[in-house]
Design a protein around this nucleic acid. Structure first.
Lengths: 147, 147
DNA sequence: TTAAGTGCATTTAGTTTATGGACTGACTAT
DNA sequence: ATAGTCAGTCCATAAACTAAATGCACTTAA
């Protein structure tokens, strides 16, 4: 199966991964959440090859996750900022970071975390159910077809 | 930069993606959450080439996300089940699915969702803060270095 | 006791994608 | 003039992926 065939899959995870599931795309999105917006900054930060960066940015723009914004004329230059659809990835990024922090070995003392501005604490994120507000754990969910 | 160099990055997202950030790994993990455990089942389900499947399963085992469990002798055959570290990816998968469902176009009527067994509702997951219990939105978090 | 089937692993060859470095073009600042 | 900045392109090489075939250790049915 070719990867591109996943786009039309029934499964929302498959469709999400058809956009995000390669080696660099989510790293670029992460940088956007950290305030990186320009081509040269992504390139310097990630060490990605320029060809791939061009390609990935174009895909992210086409997917509606990033939008290009002109920041100067003569010559006109664009930077890349998260759209609403891109900002909606916040939850994914937080949970991915939390998994990386707690499940993957590393030097905890040098790790980046987040502060939750509204309560002032260092953030430990978890997934909750909108209906009951309780934490959702793997054993309590069952796949169903939507009505 | 070579992808493998990310493993030792300070950022937990980078470290998570050094394990999960390729085209098939998270699809395999998704299948595990849906109860798929055997080589032939992954292969039939995903249409992935056997060579890559072998490689990805080996990586997932080596990363401690899946564990091999013998399910027969003569010849001994193993299937693959999620370890605790793998089950910890539940939150990532739920948020990824929610993003795919709400942000990526598709036919909503055929989409798979989850039921939250403890309250009985179809699950709409969101990320909450362990300290205050409130929903965490992008504008309320700021990156900090951990103490 | 052959024949067909299961559940993989391995090999091969061809295609696709990624990489790193040099390069271009439009400007600005000195 | 000269150098620098910035987004982006081009190209040769390297790596990753695919599909299909083959091998192997067994089991079950004929």
């Amino acid at each position: 199966m070719r990867w591109s065939e996943l786009e039309s899959a029934d499964c929302p995870i498959a469709r999400a991964l058809s956009i995000l599931g390669d080696r660099w795309t989510l790293m670029i999105v992460r940088d956007c959440f950290f305030g990186v917006h320009r081509f040269e900054a992504f390139q310097a930060n990630l060490g990605i090859s320029r060809t791939i960066l061009r390609d990935r940015l174009a895909h992210l723009v086409q997917a509606g996750i990033l939008v290009q914004r002109p920041y100067q004329d003569r010559p006109v230059r664009y930077d890349y900022v998260l759209s609403a659809k891109g900002k909606a990835l916040n939850g994914v990024m937080l949970m991915l970071g939390e998994w990386g922090r707690t499940a993957v070995d590393g030097q905890p003392e040098t790790q980046i975390r987040h502060r939750h501005q509204t309560c002032g604490h260092v953030l430990t994120p978890y997934v909750a159910c909108a209906a009951c507000g309780e934490e959702v754990v793997a054993k309590d969910v069952r796949a169903v077809r939507a009505a």
